[in-house]
């Protein structure tokens, strides 16, 4: 019974394994190759694609005056709600404004709001989180309680509440986003610091007599930068989505300033939705593409900085 030639049925993987084995045999003794990178190629490729899209949209918005032939604000009553043409690449809206120009200029404001709020809230969150995580004490207690209060509100409700109180303006929106957004990054930075604090090199630095601020910001912060970067990208994406949502409701940036959300606001009208697809589809796609690219970057950063998430 044993002597009968029994073989396991071959599976899809076997062929792949054979190739790998043969390659390995043929290069035995030769110098090692960086085969490890091959495995991470796919996730990196997505991050790379994300970065390219991100860069293109950012640059196009930045150089909007050079790229757009029309003024985004000035109505043109002779070209109302026209479909895309050579003259108006994305068509025109109900007051005859060029949508391509509006998308480019709107990108400036939307990206400014998203990235600006993310950076500001990261700055506040990191400064407080790093210090209070390392030093602890009353500052830590207060910051923790305050962030708990902020985080027990559903974010959009808190944002709208503040909009109702502070009023609608571009600056107010950034302030409101920063106020409602710092808590998450503060908690993350604090948690990272609490775990880094127990590491030996920190004990050593303390025994050298270095001040707490220097140890916290100069020596410990760099070790927490990875997750902070990931957090900044993810909150940029979240803020851009929120700005779009608020402006769509007509409660974000004042309607006179073009932003991606404000352009989409027109689609609340069912007739526009049904008949003038070019007014809302391109800008919706742009928001989605931009947020997608930011999320890809975030994921790539996470994979690159967190070895436990590999694979």
């Amino acid at each position: 019974m044993v002597d009968a030639p029994i073989t396991r049925p071959r599976t899809r993987r076997d062929g792949q394994f054979d190739r790998l084995r043969d390659r390995e045999t043929s290069m035995q003794g030769k110098a090692k190759r960086g085969g490890r990178f091959l495995g991470k190629f796919l996730s990196n490729r997505l991050a790379l694609v994300g970065f390219v899209i991100f860069a293109i949209i950012c640059l196009m918005s930045l150089f909007a005056p050079l790229l757009a032939q029309h003024d985004p604000m000035s109505p043109n009553l002779r070209a109302i709600a026209q479909p895309p043409s050579v003259e108006h690449w994305f068509g025109t809206d109900k007051t005859g404004r060029d949508i391509f120009a509006r998308v480019l200029y709107g990108g400036r404001v939307s990206i400014l709001v998203g990235l600006g709020s993310a950076l500001l809230s990261a700055l506040i969150g990191v400064i407080i989180g790093v210090y209070s995580g390392y030093v602890g004490g009353w500052l830590d207690w207060i910051a923790m309680r305050v962030s708990e209060i902020f985080m027990s509100f559903p974010q959009i409700i808190l944002v709208l509440l503040l909009v109702a109180i502070l009023g609608q303006s571009l600056l107010n929106l950034i302030v409101i986003f920063t106020l409602t957004g710092w808590g998450g990054i503060y908690r993350m930075a604090r948690a990272r610091m609490l775990s880094i604090r127990e590491e030996e090199y920190v004990q050593a630095l303390r025994s050298f007599g270095l001040g707490p601020a220097r140890i916290a910001y100069k020596h410990m912060l760099p070790n927490a930068l990875g997750p902070i970067m990931v957090n900044i990208t993810l909150s940029t994406a979240a803020f851009i989505l929120q700005e779009a949502g608020l402006s769509f409701l007509g409660l974000g940036v004042p309607l006179s300033i073009p932003t991606w959300g404000n352009i989409l606001n027109a689609a609340q009208d069912l007739r526009v939705l049904e008949q003038n697809w070019w007014i809302w589809l391109p800008v919706g796609a742009t928001i989605s593409l931009f947020v997608l690219s930011v999320n890809f970057i975030g994921d790539g950063l996470r994979d690159a900085t967190d070895p436990s998430q590999q694979g």
Binding site: A237, L241, A244, G245, F248, L264, A267, L270, L273, E274, W277, W280, G284, I287, S288, V291, L292, N295, F296, D299
Partner: peptide
Amino acid sequence: GMLGVSIPEFFFGLVAILVFAI
């Protein structure tokens, strides 16, 4: 999944209304 977290919900909603309702 990535697309799901990247596309604004209300945009999904608009497209859904256009396609399935209108």
